[in-house]
Each structure stands twice: as C-alpha cells, then as structure tokens.
Design a protein around this nucleic acid. Sequence first.
RNA 1: GGGGAGAUACCAAAGUGGCCAACUGGGGCAGACUGUAAAUCUGCUGGGAAUUCCCUUCGUAGGUUCGAAUCCUGCUCUCCCCA
Length: 375
Amino acid sequence: MFVLQSSDKSTKARTGILKTAHGEIPTPVFMPVGTVGTVKGIMQRDLKDDIGAKIILGNTYHLYLRPGTEIVKKAGGLHNFISWHGPMLTDSGGFQVFSLAGNRKLTEEGAIFRSHIDGSRHIFTPENTIDIQRIFGADIIMAFDECAPFPCDYKYARKSMELTHKWLDRAVARFRETEPVWDYPQYLFPIVQGSTFGDLRKQSAEKIASVSMEGNAIGGLSVGEPEEEMYRMLEIVNDILPDDKPRYLMGVGTPVNILEAIERGVDMFDCVMPTRNGRNGMLFTGQGTVNIRNRKWIDDFSPIDPDGPSSVSLNYSKAYLRHLIISGEILGAQLASIHNLAFYIKLVTDARKNIESGNFKKWKDGMIKKLSDRL
RNA sequence: GGGGAGAUACCAAAGUGGCCAACUGGGGCAGACUGUAAAUCUGCUGGGAAUUCCCUUCGUAGGUUCGAAUCCUGCUCUCCCCA
C-alpha cells in the first residue's frame, strides 16, 4: 500500500507513494479538510483541477449527525454522495469529542456526547466508529482516540493514552472481523497520543507500531503546546514508527510546521488553516503571509501570488480580493481558499521534488525564511 | 403664511444638571485562527503625555450654576404637518 521512494541524506525527509483504490498519492501530501462532506467553498472540480488535491478528508462526527450514516449508505458511500472520486480519509470523531469538551463524558466503553445540532445524546465507541467508517467507505479510516488537551498533567495524559490504546485494540479487532461495505479495501490508521511527555509518546508509538496497520498517525499535537515541543515529540515518535509505513501528523499546521515535520519524517498532513484562515483574509504566499484586509493592498493590482500555485493566484489581484473579502462576498472566501490550498499543495509537492533531488535541507531553510515574513 | 419636531464624534443613534471623552450599532483600522459547532472571534476608533494625567469637543453666540451635551435667550440650519 505504501512504497518508499527516496530518502533525504541529511534529514529524515522521504518521498513515497500511497496506493488506494481511488488513486495513488505521492507523499509528502497535504489533505484539504472537508469536514461535512465539502471543502468549504470549493467545488470538487476546482479541488481536483486547479488545486491539485490528491486526497481529502471527511469527518465521522459531523457526517454521522448530518445527513446521517443511512443516507450516506443509500447514496452508495461518501465518494458517491459528495461526487469526489479520488482518495478520501475520514477522521473518527475523536477530535470532535475533545473540542466539544463541555458536552462529553468519557467512559471505558466510549464517549457519550450531545449533538451540537439538536442536543440529542449519542455514543461513539471504538467499534461503532469503525462500523460507521466502513459505511462511509473512505480509503483510509481512523481509530477512535482521545485527544488530550494542552496543558494537561502527566497523570491525565497517561490515563488518556492508556484509554486510547485500549480503544485501539477494540477498533483493530472490529476492523479485522468486518469486511468493507463497498468493493474495495480500506486501511485503518491508529493514532499516537501522549501529550508532550517524551516517555508517554515513546510508549504510545511502540503500541501503535505493534498493531501493524498500513499507516500510522500522530495526534494530540498542535493543540496549544510550543512548536519546539511538537518537533521534539515528532522526533521521539518517528524514531519508533516504522519507516516503511506512512506517518500522518493530524491537524498540522502552518507551512513552517509542515516543512519542519517533513524534515522529521512525516508524510501526510491535514489542516483547516488554508481554508479557515483564507476565509478570514489570511493568505499564504511564497513571499510570506498576507493579511489581505490591510489597507495597504487597496490599490495593489498585482497578482495574489506571482508564484502562481493556481490560476486564481495569477488571474486575480490583491486589490480585488481585498475588496471581495472586506465586502463579505462569497467569491472572496472561495478565491482565498483556492489560493491557499493550492499554495499548501505546491509546498509539499516542491518538498517532494527537493527531497528527490537531494536539495531538501537547503530549499527548506530558504523557504522557512521567506514564509516567516509578514507582508 | 401657520403649527410642530430636531441639530451629539466618519455614519446612524442613546444620553436631558455632576457617575460623559460621551451607551449601542454600522463603518474604519489592526490582531487571532493548526485532526472546522468558525464567511468566525477579539481589540482600538477626538488629540497628546502613554497604569488612576492633561487638553479640545455634543449646530452657533451668549447666559444661569460650584458644575452644562443636558436649563434659559438670540441666531443659523434641517425635517414634518396644515394652508
């Protein structure tokens, strides 16, 4: 399922190909987030053609609540329902249980929570989140975990990690004893936890590696801890997670975070930043980040980004995009999202090229310098 | 021509003797956003020194008062109704 292609000499960065029933994914890869079955504001056609997305995410929590598992099943699975025929990954809902903190109750059995839509009570367990994700039919599905908050004390972090590990065994058991609902294989990724404690991270990575799934994920990071802590955890975890399986760093991050993580051996990323921040007027460009709402862009008729990660970046001006965003126009959110997503995808694509050509370290250092600028 | 209402900071609009440099909304300016309950949220928005300070402001010119955006008088302007 995963083929390692090349490795950087001076760092742990590498390239590979992730093979799924819906297509092959060159890594490193960035996966746009499509929580409720849509990458907000973006048509599937643009996602594929202009942005060049290779795989997108959906979310079990949101889709289970609305439209509901039965509807997705009736539609013939998530791919058919949302008219995206490339690879997909669904998150298990563990993060939602964490972010809906006020409304949840964790037990050994699973997480009891209330719907943010109508207040109704529901339970997620390691087993039913596998069942639901079998029905949704994403190519890659995630184990149900607990994402510990930051900061959290050692005792809580350990308990939370142990619960996640127990849940993992049950999820793997259910995964193994069930068949795909649709006629192609799915892969289950377990998730490393352990907060910012090195020994817990090590222990968790060993556990996760021991279940020998087709790929492994690293969760519970970029939840408020200092970036240096995140990098330190990545180094510990990636030393243990097998090299011949893809490593997925969940929810990360800024362009700089992504480059630092690639350097440490991470292959897959997802983050809401390019879309959410884009809607709110923040652009990522090859020259640095831009707050397009700032007055200084009012008469800047130059392209959004002359590096042109997408046609949108070249064909629309900063002044026009500023006008659209400030006016609250839908098109503004769409253009900013398309540009930012294309930027992210070009970033990881360029990383891949530079790893292949043996120039990664030098290229990365130069990029980080540029990315840190605020225009 | 007669009668009535009103003029408050960029706009709209509260405030009708001290707690008012003046509620609130909009606009403007800036910031935040990391497995999306987010086209959302936060701060600032008279000037200056820049933790409890000073100065100039509520159409305009005077007056009353210890003290006025708030009370009185003149003036200017706006709006509404009836002829």
